[in-house]
């Protein structure tokens, strides 16, 4: 068969909603796109633990601490599901991780913002996990089987994340004046970066078309962002708070909320490495990896010893 015949057949499968599995033939560019997307998605889960990890030891109660710990632990699991899915495409785990540590691979820019108060943990759960969920619900139907299955697993766990965040904010919004102010302040700081999580406007990004054709992505950045705005504009009312956008307004004709312009200069700045915490995040990841070296060595030594003992027993 000629290579274009392979490609035609591949596209027919995609069009017929047949999932692509690891051993199936796939165009090189499809494989490459997936390796990048899945590994960077995995990195986002892992680096995403850092801003929240900052508050585990300072959570206001034992209950909140246990919840946050469980949430952050989930994110580590999400990283693992995704690294495994990525591996099915034929790339070694070490290389994926090295790419993160060398700064070669990226992660979502949202995690380069600092968590200044406890209310930020609430805002992250509600807004950042909320935005991630919309992306991930879409990806449950992505064309690559292992990626789609990882997403289904992840989405099941995510809804607790968003709820616990909203619950934190709801408690603060019913608290003292100082707590209310803290709540609004966190929303003000996290709102715009959360909108940026969906990526640049459709008119500014080129590879969406190919990803849509391959059904890796199934909704455009702008579609997802609009969905997010519509959702949050309603939910914020329950909190008796406001979103920091004076242009936010229901548009009856469109049946959607209109919203103000995003500061793309800020976005590009963070993407290029000049966000408030870019260096700190990467340094923390590298340190964790280096400090864990002895654990990995010990595990390998222990496994060797155990294998040895079994051999002696068997002999």
């Amino acid at each position: 068969m000629q290579s274009h015949q392979f490609e035609n057949r591949f596209q027919q499968k995609i069009d017929a909603e047949t999932k692509i599995e690891p051993k199936d033939w796939m165009p090189d560019a499809y494989r490459k796109t997936l390796i990048r997307q899945i590994s960077q998605h995995a990195h986002s889960e892992i680096v995403g633990m850092l801003p929240e990890g900052n508050w585990i030891s300072r959570a206001p109660s034992l209950k909140r601490k246990a919840i946050l710990l469980a949430k952050v632990q989930d994110e580590a699991g999400h990283g693992l599901y995704l690294y495994s899915a990525c591996e099915t495409l034929g790339i070694a785990r070490e290389e994926t991780i090295n790419d993160l540590h060398s700064g070669k691979a990226k992660y979502s820019s949202i995690f380069n913002y600092p968590t200044l108060t406890w209310a930020d943990i609430g805002a992250i759960g509600w807004l950042v996990d909320g935005a991630a969920i919309l992306n991930q619900v879409m990806l449950c139907r992505t064309s690559y089987g292992p990626y789609a299955r990882a997403m289904v697993r992840i989405c099941k766990e995510e809804s607790f994340h968003q709820r616990q965040g909203f619950d934190i904010l709801l408690t603060l919004s019913n608290g003292t004046e100082a707590q209310k102010t803290m709540c609004q302040d966190a929303i003000n700081r996290w709102w715009w970066p959360s909108l940026m999580m969906f990526g640049p406007k459709d008119s500014e990004s080129t590879n969406s078309d190919q990803s849509m054709k391959w059904k890796i992505k199934r909704k455009t950045n702008d579609e997802l962002r609009q969905q997010f705005v519509d959702m949050c504009a309603e939910q914020v009312k329950v909190l008796n708070m406001v979103l920091p956008d004076k242009d936010l307004q229901w548009n009856a004709a469109r049946q959607h909320y209109d919203f103000g312009g995003i500061d793309w200069n800020e976005f590009w700045n963070v993407v290029k490495g000049n966000g408030p915490c870019n260096k700190e995040r990467l340094a923390a990841r590298r340190k964790a990896h280096d400090d864990g070296a002895w654990v990995r060595e010990a595990a390998a030594a222990y496994a060797a010893k155990r294998a040895n003992k079994q051999e002696i027993k068997a002999a």
Binding site: R31, K32, T33, I35, R36, Q37, I38, S39, Q40, H41, S44, L89, G90, I91, A92, R93, E94, E95, T96, N98, D99, G103, K104, A105, K106, Y107, S108, S109, I110, A131, A132, N135, M196, M197, F198, G199, P200, E204, S205, T206, N207, S208, N221, F267, V271
Partner: peptide, 22 residues
């Protein structure tokens, strides 16, 4: 102009598909 997961750009991102160098 290329983006993968959400806002993650394709500027100097990992090439992939090379054997592990570690």
């Amino acid at each position: 102009r290329k983006f993968y997961y959400g806002d993650i750009p394709d500027d100097i991102s990992g090439e992939g598909l090379k054997p592990a160098q570690t």
